Amino acid sequence: MTSPTLHSFPPLVATGARILILGNMPGVVSLRADRYYAHPRNAFWRITGALFGFDADAPYDERVAALTEAGVALWDVLKSCRRAGSLDAAVEPNSMVPNDFDAFFAAHPTIAHVCFNGTAAERNYRRLVETRAAMRYSRLPSTSPAHTASFESKAAAWRDALID
């Protein structure tokens, strides 16, 4: 049986963004909610709220505005793929279609740092997208509850990579 084809969200980005955080593909809870990092145990909003000074429990639109006003864009490596469930390991490799990063970077030339939210995002970006020499890249520990490192260790790694 073929897994369903999933489609990611458009990027969240404001003029002048300097950092792009890339996930691999939104999980089931996020896709149903039509919101990035909607799973209540995902640490993304807690970590970015702490780093950029906004309330991680604020309404979604306020969190998005605070993140983008801080110069951070948010997107996923994959535009579409087939996957059963939410795990990156369940993505069918031959189904992966990357987002159009050439057009994205042309429209947002101020982005100089790409951060991968987990190993799968980095692996698939490097496999499917042409790496840009002038860009800085950082792999961060996944904020997913499936990645069992402590919140404190995840937050420290994110702080080290994102806060100059």
Rank of each mutant, 00 (worst) to 15 (best):
R32L: 14
P141S: 12
A50R: 13
G27V: 03
P11L: 13
R136E: 10
R82P: 04
A38Q: 03
D160A: 15
L87P: 00
N42A: 15
A106D: 13
A14H: 13
V13G: 06
A157P: 08
Y36W: 15
T110C: 05
A161K: 06
S86N: 02
V28M: 07
F151C: 03
T48Q: 12
R159T: 13
P109A: 02
G53E: 09
R82M: 06
A146N: 10
R18H: 12
E62T: 15
I111N: 06
A58S: 09
F52Y: 15
L67D: 06
D55S: 09
P26D: 10
A14K: 14
R132Q: 14
S138P: 12
V72R: 01
N124Y: 15
G49M: 05
D100M: 11
D76Q: 02
A103M: 09
R63N: 07
S95W: 04
R82A: 07
M96S: 00
G16K: 06
R132L: 15
N124H: 15
T143M: 11
N42W: 08
M1N: 00
L74D: 01
R35Q: 15
L74Q: 04
I47H: 13
R132K: 14
A146W: 11
L6P: 03
M25D: 03
N94Y: 00
A103E: 13
V72P: 00
P4Y: 01
G118I: 02
P141C: 10
G118W: 10
A84D: 14
V28A: 07
L51C: 09
E122H: 07
A146R: 12
A120L: 02
G49K: 08
Y60W: 08
T119R: 15
R18T: 14
K79L: 15
S150I: 12
R159V: 06
E130G: 05
G85N: 07
L78Y: 04
D55F: 06
T110R: 14
A73K: 02
A149M: 12
T15N: 13
S86W: 09
G71T: 00
W158C: 06
R35S: 06
A50F: 03
Y137S: 05
A58R: 09
L87F: 00
P11G: 05
A106L: 06
P26G: 08
M25S: 04
A43G: 08
S142K: 05
G53K: 12
A56I: 00
R32I: 07
C81V: 11
S30A: 13
L128A: 03
A149H: 10
W45R: 12
F104H: 11
G53L: 09
R139S: 10
A161Y: 05
T119V: 08
T119N: 10
